[in-house]
Design a binder for these strands. Structure first.
Lengths: 149, 149
DNA sequence: TGCAATTATATCGTGCACGATGCAAATGTA
DNA sequence: TACATTTGCATCGTGCACGATATAATTGCA
C-alpha cells in the first residue's frame, strides 16, 4: 500500500505544528530578556489590552482551559507580574490584575512584533500573504472551536 | 501607549499556535482509536514511509531533538509499536524499526487525512488555499531552521 | 424554599517540548 | 598512535497542554 496521503510531506498539520514551535523558538531570545515564556507573554498581551479580566475571560481569549491557565497564572503571580483575587460579586470568579512590574514589561515587548515579522517576510512571502494566512487561520479557529461546543 | 502591534488580534504566531493545538485536538478521536498521541502518529508516518531510520534521521524529519524523541520512542517501544537497536556499524546510533503491530496501525490511519481535510475546507477556503498556506509554512520552516544553525 | 444542575476555578496525572548536561563511540589531527 | 573534538543518544528539570476529577458558589426550577 502506497498511501501518499500518509506521507509527512502531504500533511497540513505537521507544518503548522512545526512552524508554531519554530516561531515560538524565534521569540525566545526576546522573551528570555523579559524572563517570560511564550504562553506567559500571551497572558500579558491580553492584560495589557484589557486589565482586570477573570480567569474565564482570559481562557476564552487564549483558547486555553483553566487546567492550563490556573498553574500558569499562579506562576506569574509568584513572579509578581500579576495578582489574583476572588471577585466579590461572584465568589467563584478570580479577577486577574497586572502589577506595576507587569506593566513595565510592555516597554520591553514593544519592539518584538516588528522584529519577528522581519524574519518572516521573504522574496516569496509578502505582508499581504501573511495577512491572508492569518485570515485563513482565524477562519479555522472559528470552525474548530465551534465543533468543540 | 496604544501599541496596536501588541494586540492579540494583530499577532501571527498566536493563530498559528492555536490552530496547531486545535487541529491536534481534531485528530484526537481518530488517534484515540489507535491508542496514539499526535507526536507518536508523526513518528509512525515517518517509519511507514521509511523504516529502519536512526533516531537522528527521525529527528531531522520531525524537527524534534533527541531530548524529545528518546522518551517518545521509548514509550512507543514499550507499546510494542517499534523496536530500538544499536547500529553495528556505528555503535552510537540507534536504529528504529517498526513492528508488525506498528505496520497494522497504518490501515486504521488511512482514512484520517481525508476526514481531517474535510473539516478544513469551507466556502472561503479551497484546497488551493490550503496548498498555498502549506507552501508558505514550508518556506518559513526553511528560514527558521537555517537560523538555528 | 429545597435541591439538582450549572458555572468558575483548581488539582492531578501523563505526555510532550526543550535547555542543560552527561557519556560513550567515532573522528580528526598533531 | 595519543588525545582533543565531534557526534549520537539519553537523562534531568521545568513549563506547558489537556483529559479527568474535585469543590465551592451560583442558578434554575419544581
Amino acid at each position: 500500500m502506497d498511501s501518499p496521503q500518509l506521507k509527512l510531506s502531504n500533511q497540513i498539520c505537521f507544518p503548522l505544528y512545526s512552524v508554531s514551535r519554530l516561531i515560538t523558538k524565534a521569540y525566545k531570545p526576546y522573551l528570555d530578556e523579559m524572563g517570560l515564556t511564550y504562553p506567559q507573554y500571551l497572558v500579558l498581551m491580553v492584560l495589557w489590552e484589557n486589565d482586570g479580566l477573570t480567569v474565564n475571560q482570559i481562557s476564552e481569549k487564549l483558547l486555553l482551559n483553566t487546567n492550563t491557565l490556573s498553574p500558569l497564572l499562579k506562576r506569574m503571580e509568584k513572579m509578581e507580574i500579576l495578582k489574583r483575587n476572588r471577585s466579590s460579586e461572584d465568589e467563584r470568579s478570580v479577577i486577574v490584575q497586572i502589577t506595576e512590574k507587569g506593566k513595565q514589561l510592555k516597554t520591553l515587548a514593544m519592539p518584538i512584533p516588528e522584529n519577528l515579522i522581519k524574519t518572516l517576510l521573504t522574496e516569496n512571502i509578502s505582508m499581504e500573504n501573511v495577512i491572508q494566512l492569518k485570515d485563513m487561520l482565524n477562519e479555522w479557529i472559528k470552525i474548530l472551536t465551534d465543533k468543540d461546543n
